[in-house]
Simulated scan of single mutants.
Amino acid sequence: MSSRAPAILVLEDGRVFRGEAYGSVGETVGEAVFNTGMTAYQETLTDPSYFGQVVCQTAPQIGNTGWNDEDDESRRIWVAGYVVRDPSRIASNWRSKRGLEDELAAQGIVGICGVDTRALTRHLRESGAMRAGVSSRTTDADALLQRVLAAPPMAGANLVEAVTTPEPYTYVAEGAGPAKYTVAALDLGIKRNTPRRLAARGITTTVHPAGAGVDDLLSGEPDAVFLSNGPGDPATADAQVEVTRELLRRGVPVFGICFGNQILGRALGLDTYKLKYGHRGINQPVLDRRTGKVEVTSHNHGFALAPTEPGEYFETEFGRVQVSHVCLNDDVVEGLTCLDVPAYSVQYHPEAAGGPHDADYLFDRLTALIDDHEGNRLDA
């Protein structure tokens, strides 16, 4: 292995971790967070929800399966920086086309390896997610700390415009037959596996930019509207919240995930707040109150919904709403189901590339919602 340049990671509270350059040599600043997944690093790196974040992988060795051309969840890597303990010296997988570090370097992603990621994760759990800088250009921790402190925090950050599609497009699955349903998706940072999972149910998805209005979304007379995942602070998404309110007023079926769950929640009158260190990984236990089942789920969120009333149900201008899913680790609201209008959402990722797939049924729930809505409309 070639020699590596020395590198440092500096947190905004002044703690310093030293290691070696990994990926592109340079300097970057973002919000330091940790991901507990033992696999799926390619899907993590290409998830737009990680835009602006320096991601620490808690799994001790990263890069074992290299990088392929099939598992990207978007058009590029979005993380601001990458932190690993032990980069694998070889990549062994039948689909691998190149090494992880080669891809990081090609896309200009600054990383650091040789870091005690367990100590970093414990620190973030105790002190909370915070701004951090990674540099392989300098080892001057004090100077890097000043640049970290000058960077904007994640709270108050409006990032969806940076990751959304510039123009609408329609996803057509390879070999798919005639579509039974159509869905308009509001792209707040959508992952590619979402329209794939919809296509498996006979749904054709047209993806719209984050700034699309109600008339744009409904121009193709879709059967439902999907609110995607995405990065940043949901408190900044006033335009998308108002669009969602209008969809609810018109009785359009709505399904949201992650950032989309927070958009729906705000449309229903709830506030959002920043979690101490967030949920990021593929092993979060969530209770579905409608069925009593516990799902192991994929998460990536640093904000959550705050119910205005204690308990499982609350009243809104759109009728009664159930807090349908809760995280069993910390009781965070993980899903909403409207009882008087056709809308529901979850905070986690049912598309779950690369797994687990306990929550895949939520896409079936969308087709059932559409069928029920159409039946009720025809009966009216």
Rank of each mutant, 00 (worst) to 15 (best):
S136N: 08
S136C: 11
S136A: 11
T138S: 14
T138G: 04
T139E: 12
T139I: 13
T139L: 12
D140P: 10
L144R: 01
L144N: 06
L145D: 00
Q146H: 12
R147S: 03
A150P: 05
A151R: 09
P152V: 12
P152R: 11
P153K: 06
M154G: 07
M154C: 07
M154E: 10
G156L: 02
G156M: 06
A157Y: 01
A157C: 08
E161Y: 13
E161W: 10
A162T: 13
V163Q: 08
T164K: 05
T165E: 15
T165M: 12
P166M: 10
P166R: 12
E167K: 13
T170Y: 14
T170C: 14
T170E: 14
Y171Q: 07
V172M: 07
E174L: 13
E174T: 08
E174R: 10
G175R: 04
A179R: 10
A179W: 00
A179C: 13
Y181I: 10
Y181Q: 06
A184S: 12
A184G: 05
A184M: 06
A184W: 03
L186D: 06
L186Q: 02
D187A: 13
D187N: 15
G189S: 14
I190N: 04
K191G: 10
T194Y: 11
R196V: 14
R196G: 09
A200V: 08
R201M: 09
R201F: 11
I203G: 01
I203V: 15
H208N: 01
H208D: 01
H208V: 06
P209S: 05
A210H: 10
A212H: 00
V214T: 03
V214I: 09
V214A: 00
V214S: 00
D216I: 09
D216T: 07
L217I: 00
L218P: 05
S219C: 10
V225D: 02
F226N: 09
L227Q: 07
S228P: 08
P231Y: 14
P231T: 14
G232R: 11
D233C: 02
P234D: 00
A235I: 14
A235S: 15
T236C: 15
A239V: 09
Q240P: 06
Q240S: 12
V241P: 02
V243K: 02
R245P: 04
E246Q: 15
L248D: 07
R249A: 13
R250N: 11
R250S: 05
G251E: 01
G251K: 03
V252P: 00
P253F: 12
V254Y: 01
G256M: 02
I257E: 02
C258D: 12
F259K: 08
G260R: 02
G260V: 04
Q262K: 02
I263W: 00
L264E: 00
L264I: 03
G265E: 01
R266V: 04
R266P: 03
A267W: 00
